[in-house]
Design a protein around this nucleic acid. Structure first.
Lengths: 159, 159
DNA sequence: CTGCGTGCAAACATTTTGCACGATG
DNA sequence: CATCGTGCAAAATGTTTGCACGCAG
C-alpha cells in the first residue's frame, strides 16, 4: 500500500468521453479540470468564471451544454436546492467523499451544509434503494436529502 | 362515524393569517382554497390558472407573492425537483397524507413519485432530525428526498 | 474533409420588482 | 382613512437555441 504519488489519474475522463463517441475538446477538458478541483457545488455561472481563468475564450452556453452532456453521461450530478439555479458536482470527485446534505431556511434562503449522518444514512439507503430500483426499473446513481425549516437567526428575529 | 358532510374545515387558515398580522383578501383565500383541493404539487403557473377560474382578475405576481408569504408562514412547502420551476404543497393538506418522494431521470427529466418507504424513512428521520436540529439550532419543518438516475425507457433507448 | 462542438447573440421561461390604484381593517 | 395588497408591465435571472465558423478525428 505504498502508492504515495497523489493518486492523480491524470485525466480519467478522457476515455469516458471517447467511449461515448464524444470529442475531446479544450472547453470540455477545462470544465472537467475545474470540476475535479473545486470542493463545493458550483453553479453553472461559477463554473463559467472558473473555466474562463483556464480557457478564457469559453462561452457560457458551452458550459451549459457541457454540463448537460456530463450529466447525461453520468460523470457529474446536477443538484437543485431551490435557489433558482442548479449546482453541479463530479460523481467521483472531492465532493463525493464529503458527501453531505442541506438544511434550507425558508425565511432567508440560507443553505447550511450538514454531513453528520453518514452511517444512519447508508443504513436507510441500503434498505430503500434496492426495492425502489427494482420496483420502478430505475437505475439510481445519486440521491439528495434536504431539510427545510427556519434557521437560528430567523427564529431570533421574528420569533 | 357518520359525519358525511365533506369534512370541510371551512377556513382553518384565516386565523393563521390574522395571527401573522396579514390581511384576509380575495386572492389569498382563493389561492389557499386551490392549494387545499389540488392533490399533487402544482407549479406557480398551474396554481395561477386554477386560481383564475375562482378569481379571474388575479395576477401572476400576486400568486408568487402569496406563495412566498405562505412559505414564510410555514403554511405551505416549496419544492424543487430541478425542473427550472418550483412546486408547492400545503403543509396540512391532501398531499401531506400521501407524503412521498421522487425518482428523477437525468436523461429525460421524468419525475416518478414513490411513496413506499414510510416506515424506514420515519426510522431514519427520527434518528437524524433531532441531532441536526440541535447542532445547527435549526427548526426543521419538512424534508425532501430525491433519487437521481436513469429510468427504464432511457436505459432501453441508449443502453 | 466531414461533422461535431463552439462562441455569440437572441430567444425563452420563470420569478421579481416598481408603481399607482383599490380594498381591508 | 392609513396602509397593505393588488394588477399590470417591465426588469432581472437562469437557461436554451439558431447560426456560421473552426477544430478534432
Amino acid at each position: 500500500m505504498r502508492r504515495r504519488r497523489a493518486m492523480a489519474p491524470p485525466c480519467w475522463w478522457r476515455s469516458r468521453l471517447r467511449e461515448g463517441g464524444f470529442r475531446l475538446t479544450g472547453p470540455r477538458e477545462a470544465i472537467l479540470q475545474i470540476l475535479s478541483k473545486v470542493p463545493a457545488h458550483p453553479s453553472a455561472e461559477e463554473i463559467f468564471f472558473l473555466v474562463k481563468q483556464l480557457y478564457p475564450q469559453v462561452g457560457l452556453a458551452t458550459v451549459y451544454r457541457t454540463l448537460a452532456l456530463l450529466v447525461n453521461m453520468g460523470l457529474i450530478h446536477k443538484l437543485d436546492f431551490g435557489e433558482g439555479k442548479a449546482r453541479y458536482e463530479l460523481v467521483q470527485g472531492p465532493a463525493a467523499k464529503e458527501h453531505h446534505h442541506h438544511l434550507l431556511c425558508i425565511r432567508c434562503g440560507k443553505v447550511i451544509d450538514c454531513g453528520e449522518f453518514g452511517e444512519k444514512e447508508r443504513e436507510f439507503l441500503n434498505k430503500v434503494e434496492a426495492p425502489l430500483s427494482e420496483k420502478y426499473n430505475f437505475q439510481i446513481t445519486n440521491h439528495s436529502i434536504q431539510f427545510y425549516g427556519i434557521c437560528k437567526e430567523c427564529r431570533e428575529k421574528e420569533g
